[in-house]
Amino acid sequence: MITGLIIVLALILVLPFAFRKIEHNLEYFLLVMGLSAAIISGSLSLELAEHIFMNYLLYFITAAVLIAGLIFRISVKKIKEFVIFATTKIPLPLFIFLLILVLGLLSSFITAIIAALILVEIVHALPVKHGRKVLLTIVACFSIGLGAALTPIGEPLSTIVVSALKADFFYLARNIGIYVIPGVIALALLGAFIAGRKEAAAGVSEEDVNLDIEEEILVQAESLKAVFVRALKIFLFVIALELLGSGFKPLINTYIIQLDSRILYWINMSSAVLDNATLAAAEISPAMSLKQIQSILMGLLLSGGMLIPGNIPNIISAGKLGIKSREWAKTGLPIGLSLLVIYFGIIFLI
């Protein structure tokens, strides 16, 4: 069984980068992998199906994506006008800094999903090339993934942790805010640097032109059918995350939860492809020290932005903006690894 689960995990990590069809249909692929993991572990059952389809988040997330998509179809011109107006009144780097900072911190109250939907609508209208939009989107998704963990309404991980610890509403803000808030600020500064570098760049490459044409086609092709298909894909993606979490529990319970918190910190890089809420549910215990809880949570949160499947905001943004798995990994992996190294030193060595 364990061997089978390791094979499934390897397929999730490799196949989206190796085959374009899988990359373009990532939600369906993850659903198949989730079913495979659940079957291999023996966790596929009517009880699991009932648990998945009784989870209000499944419908809330899908409805949020659908409604935002419909609003986008009728408001795209107004959003673009607002962004153009704002970026003519203040420098683009400052606009990007404020965008990433505000969405990162606000996501803990409006949820990471809504923050991501606002992000993609604004990024669509930014006066920069597609390649720069990709970089800014990934940085912003790291910020949203971090900031959403400050309250139990921000994302499923924080809800599960607060429930497991029987903690109060601001428990996470008090105990990981000291790590999360500086991280959000640093990511906002990184976004501003990226935007500023773009303004200073001279000339336009042929690749930039091609990507711009591709993006214009993407925007123009947005139809009512496309909005509903994207919502369906998100619906299937959430189901896939639930199946993956349930399927991989034997692997987690057998080899992971007994490990030292410093090792868990690095092993939690697996949240780049697995549901971090499931990992948190398996690892977090009231018997742990605050340092252990902090290290586990930061490992999960920092890894979530590294690849598209790592967070729901990632897959919402990637799907809407046409960001490919390789594009995301090219930026997400270096940022995630850098943050993990920096925070490891802060948490364990200082």
Rank of each mutant, 00 (worst) to 15 (best):
P313A: 08
I67W: 13
S143L: 04
S338P: 02
L135D: 12
I316R: 02
R262I: 06
L274C: 11
A240R: 13
L321T: 02
L307M: 14
E242C: 07
V102W: 14
E27N: 08
V273C: 06
V209S: 09
G332S: 04
R326H: 14
V83E: 07
L302R: 09
C141Q: 03
P309Y: 08
K21M: 10
S36I: 02
L211S: 03
L301R: 06
M298I: 15
G147K: 09
T151V: 06
E81D: 12
S271C: 02
A272P: 04
I52N: 00
L35P: 03
L290F: 07
S303N: 03
T137R: 10
Q258R: 15
L290T: 08
A86N: 06
P250V: 11
I181A: 04
Y179G: 02
N314H: 08
A282D: 10
V227E: 03
Q258G: 13
W266P: 02
S43K: 15
G319T: 00
F17H: 13
L244I: 04
S261A: 14
A49H: 05
G34A: 08
I263E: 13
G104T: 00
I153P: 03
K225F: 13
A201Y: 13
F248Q: 13
T159D: 08
L135M: 14
V134Q: 12
E50P: 00
I308A: 00
L98A: 09
K129M: 06
A272W: 10
S45F: 07
I239M: 13
L259P: 00
S223K: 07
S43T: 15
L300R: 02
G305V: 11
H51V: 07
E242P: 01
F29I: 01
L105G: 09
F19M: 10
L244N: 06
L190G: 05
F72R: 15
Q258K: 14
D208E: 15
I144E: 05
P127S: 01
I347L: 09
H124P: 00
G319E: 03
E199I: 09
A68W: 14
F53L: 14
I335D: 08
G203W: 00
K166Q: 15
A148D: 05
F142M: 06
A10K: 00
G196L: 01
A231Q: 05
I347T: 00
P156T: 05
L70D: 02
L321G: 02
Q292R: 02
Q294S: 11
P286V: 02
E81L: 12
G145I: 01
L339S: 11
I114A: 12
I335A: 08
L157T: 15
S158T: 12
K129C: 03
G319I: 01
I296G: 01
K78A: 15
L321W: 02
G299V: 03
A201W: 13
